[in-house]
Design a protein around this nucleic acid. Structure first.
Length: 108
DNA sequence: GGATTGACGTGTC
DNA sequence: AGACACGCCAATC
């Protein structure tokens, strides 16, 4: 499954710069999938076992909420990684989300 | 090959 | 502000 939708999602996810985050919808749009934001998230389920590793912690929902944190080995890992990159997370959501948001469409 | 599913998104109530 | 509903679309069963 190399040319599947998943791999495209992984690619974009890997392109997210350190200290920045993006949303599922943004990735979907960057892929031209538009409304298939759910697929992006669904694909990230494989991110845990995907190689090379995918910085899934840099991908959140449109509200900057860490929706998928419970999918990490330790759920708190997601926030940990984000904070390590200088991203402030409060109450499971990213602070200054708009400031750290990385738009794939603008970079690609 | 139809039905189910989902780490979403946007709009309403 | 918080809860609920519907739409979208590909992968999996």
């Amino acid at each position: 499954m190399k040319d599947s939708f998943y791999d495209q999602v992984f690619e974009i996810a890997r392109l997210v710069p350190k200290g920045r985050v993006t949303s599922y919808g943004a990735i979907a749009k960057a892929l031209g999938a538009g409304g298939s934001a759910r697929m992006v998230g669904y694909a990230m389920s494989n991110a845990n076992i995907a190689h090379p590793k995918v910085p899934a912690h840099r991908v959140v929902n449109s509200s900057g909420l860490l929706t998928g944190k419970f999918h990490f080995s330790p759920p708190e890992l997601m926030q940990e990684l984000l904070e390590q990159e200088g991203i402030v997370v409060v109450n499971d959501k990213i602070k200054n989300f708009k400031s750290v948001f990385w738009n794939p469409l603008e970079e690609l």
